[in-house]
Design a binder for these strands. Structure first.
Length: 153
DNA sequence: GCCAACGTTGGC
DNA sequence: GCCAACGTTGGC
């Protein structure tokens, strides 16, 4: 089992949005970064756990736990001319952008803020906390995952 | 809204 | 293949 952190702007899609339909999986669409795509395409497995992170909000931080709910498949928004994620270079017969579905897994009792994460010595190595990191999907170690869950419990 | 950091694009 | 220009991310 692998662990991940995935960023979402809560104005666009929040952890509460995901939780409001707990039995339903949601496509993690709109990723247009190759490294992030490769994590979904090559490394994620159904059942992997995800720290659902709220970015571009105050306070930013981990809002809850989700899980990977599908095998990778082409991102349909890349083919949709009306979508803001439309990419004319991604043809259906040769899709450039790949995603997985995610679904609700568990609550945290409270948000674990970015500031708390930065202040926790045991999280110093977390990929998402490294200087200048803008990747929307980053791997997380089991230890880091457990620490965040404890901070939020 | 600002801006540092970073990824991508495209001319050469 | 280099790199300047540009667009985006995301904390503050």
């Amino acid at each position: 089992m692998n662990y991940w952190l995935m960023k979402s702007e809560p104005d666009v899609f929040s952890f509460d949005d995901l939780k409001s339909r707990p039995q339903q999986s949601e496509p993690w669409d709109g990723v247009r970064n190759y490294q992030a795509r490769n994590f979904m395409r090559d490394e994620m497995k159904v059942g992997d756990l995800i720290l659902f992170y709220h970015s571009n909000t105050n306070p930013a931080g981990v809002a809850g736990v989700a899980e990977v709910a599908s095998e990778p498949y082409p991102d349909p928004t890349a083919f949709d001319k009306k979508s803001k994620y439309y990419d004319p270079k991604s043809a259906p017969e040769n899709p450039r952008w790949i995603l997985v579905d995610v679904k609700y897994h568990a609550d945290l009792k409270r948000l674990v803020s970015l500031q708390e994460m930065k202040e926790a010595p045991a999280l110093k190595e977390m990929v998402v906390l490294q200087r200048g990191n803008r990747l929307s999907i980053t791997p997380v170690t089991r230890k880091e995952f457990n620490i965040i869950c404890e901070l939020g419990s």
